[in-house]
Amino acid sequence: MALSSSPDLASNALVNTFFDGDLIARTFPRLITEGLLNTVVIASGAIVVGVLIALLAAMLLLSDRWWIRLPARLYVDVFRGLPVIITVMLVGVGLPAAGIRPFGTDPFGYAILAIGIISGAYTAEIFRSGIQSVDPGQLQAARSLGLSYLKAMRLVVVPQGIRRVLPAMAGQFVKDIKESSLVYLLGLAAGQRELYFIAQEEVARTYNSSPLIAAGLCYLSLTIPMTYLVNRLDRRLREGPHRRAPASVEPDLPQPPVPSTAGEPR
């Protein structure tokens, strides 16, 4: 029939499927009031768990003795090598089924643990490489002053090592935020829904993908500022503290960030 109008229809369908303004506007309030907070809770919990595990695992990886390195090496290789979805299912469905229920029936706890375990495996290698890049003379100098090995590591070596890998850590934190969406697999009650879950419910109800775009924007509103913040902190630490810096020194536009995937094996 009206052959000439079919490209218009097609492009309308495209726009309506992904960019239905009304639907996006209707989804946003729930994304922001409920989803954003829950995503932040899961992601930041996973980041904290991941960093703590990573600090321990990195110290073990740096040991001179193979039998101390071995468990950390196995942990890193296994959880970097497994698909994220398998780890999340094993922890979130497997553990409770086996009667191990440290978090009762709350999926948040299991999600934080699972994503934290995966994040820790990547972050351990990031920390290890950072700590190893610190001049051995730093440890020698600290020990020569009478500091014990652990104090020397904690006060002198580790702080320097971590500063060097901040951009790589920003990349890992971005991954943690994104992977927090996998809590979806564990089932969520009302009030617990995070960004992806809310969007997915809307998509199922309306058969329109625009809510996913809305949720995507919410994720970007977390991940992009975080990358810039970490890179700014990185620059600040590199250049030392700005004391009495004039207020006009800050540029209006942020500088392009250091590639944040530097520490990720691909």
Binding site: A141, R143, V156
Partner: peptide
């Protein structure tokens, strides 16, 4: 560790702690 605290050492490449202020290098 206790013995090392009684022996001072100065290195060829100084080995100051770059993430700490000069004062904190001395007080650490």
């Amino acid at each position: 560790d206790a013995a090392r605290a009684r022996i001072g050492m100065v290195f060829q490449h100084f080995n100051l702690f770059p993430h700490l202020s000069v004062e904190r290098n001395v007080t650490l």
